[in-house]
Design a protein around this nucleic acid. Structure first.
Lengths: 220, 220
DNA sequence: AACCCAAAAATTGTCGACAATAGGCGTGTT
DNA sequence: AACACGCCTATTGTCGACAATTTTTGGGTT
């Protein structure tokens, strides 16, 4: 079930660079020098460019003709834009998950929630794990939608951006407790096969996150 | 306001190939031979690969390591998946358009509708123009959302797929008249700055299209 | 000192060739 | 005849070098 261990050099560099960018080891808005990066990875520029073009496809890099690649900038306004996109897409994903999720997938989802509850009762301050766990939760629901296009858009494109924002803005969630209970209600709606409600709850869940960020932004 | 006339060779080939694929001149599910295509366009494989990787980013090509690029297959199930994605994304875009559209953009949108009305009253059977016109309508609304991420997802990725399906499945719309009136109501909601209603109407509009396709599929 | 212009340096775009992998073909065995 | 194995061919992955464009640098003028 693991992703195959990078059959090609470009693939390995792609994966590695993606992690570096997401974790902020390559600062946002940095212009990438192809000769420099190629030398660093000890590959040719062709191979590197292959990797870079894929990163562009993930929305992590931007490219201008005759100028080069640049790491995307994470502005607060774009973060809010991302929330809007997630609200709509994940809302739909949740509706479809309620209709299409297999019992095995649902069980996995409930296990994850139970695990979160344990973790939460053990340690309150582990914002990092909670955040990754939150993303796992959303991930499983998207997979449950059984809509390949939705899965590709969210899991292979937008979620890397989401992780990038979380790493760099590090929003320790004061919302953790409430978010957990929202997760619980969402699962209940899915279990009841109530797609309409599931969508509404997911949209509110993400919208509440967005408003939380907006509020935090305004106080700065 | 035109897109700049393809600064680079790869860009020109990208644009040209994209049109060929969208219009079905390169059949779906075709495996692309890099040497062959490079020879046809009289460019090197490197340049071609640059163009191909961008087409992959548009969702028009799929790539497997050590095997190559292949034109995506358009199945009816994937068409229905695409409708679901559009329903959620364009619903959100329409809500945001109601909030953010500039008066100039709104006027442009109303002009487009008026033009459609003239065309429709003149010639009924011009399904092709009606379809492109329909896409223009949706296009303008997405632009009005003022959400760059939404605009990129819809206008630079999904709409090429939409056009591809329309070319190949050629669904002459028996829904044209109703769709037109739905467009009218959507504009009204936007003009009233009623984002909530605008979203609902757009979702219904796309959902109705989806159901129309589903119905047609079942009769085959 | 600020500005503009030209030459130089560096970077991206493009090319053709070699290496590694996948697919097809023929042979041999059961 | 069907299947398995190994070779051969074709395609993709990777490389280094050249061409075109951009950026920097330096000098000259106002």
């Amino acid at each position: 079930m693991q992703p195959p261990p990078a059959t090609t050099r470009a693939d390995a560099v792609f994966t590695h660079l993606r992690q570096r960018i997401v974790e902020g080891q390559v600062a946002t808005n940095t212009k990438l020098s192809e000769p420099e990066l190629a030398k660093e990875y000890e590959i040719s520029r062709s191979t590197l460019r292959d990797a870079l073009s894929r990163l562009e496809g993930c929305g992590l890099l931007e490219r201008k003709a005759n100028i080069g690649y640049r790491v995307v900038t994470l502005s607060t306004s774009q973060l809010l834009e991302l929330f809007r996109v997630r609200e709509s897409l994940e809302g739909m994903a949740c509706r479809l998950a309620a209709e299409n999720m297999t019992p095995a997938q649902l069980m996995e989802l409930k296990d994850l929630l139970a695990q979160h509850q344990k973790n939460e009762s053990l340690q309150q301050g582990q914002a990092y794990f909670q955040q990754e766990g939150d993303l796992d939760f959303h991930f499983l629901i998207v997979l449950g939608s059984a809509n390949k296009m939705l899965i590709r858009l969210l899991c292979e494109e937008l979620y890397y951006l989401v992780r990038m924002y979380r790493y760099q803005f590090g929003m320790a969630s004061s919302r953790a407790k409430r978010a957990f209970s929202e997760h619980h209600n969402i699962i209940q709606a899915i279990e009841d096969k109530d797609g309409e409600l599931a969508e509404i709850l997911m949209r509110r869940h993400i919208s509440a996150s967005r408003k939380n960020v907006e509020k935090r932004m305004n106080t700065l």
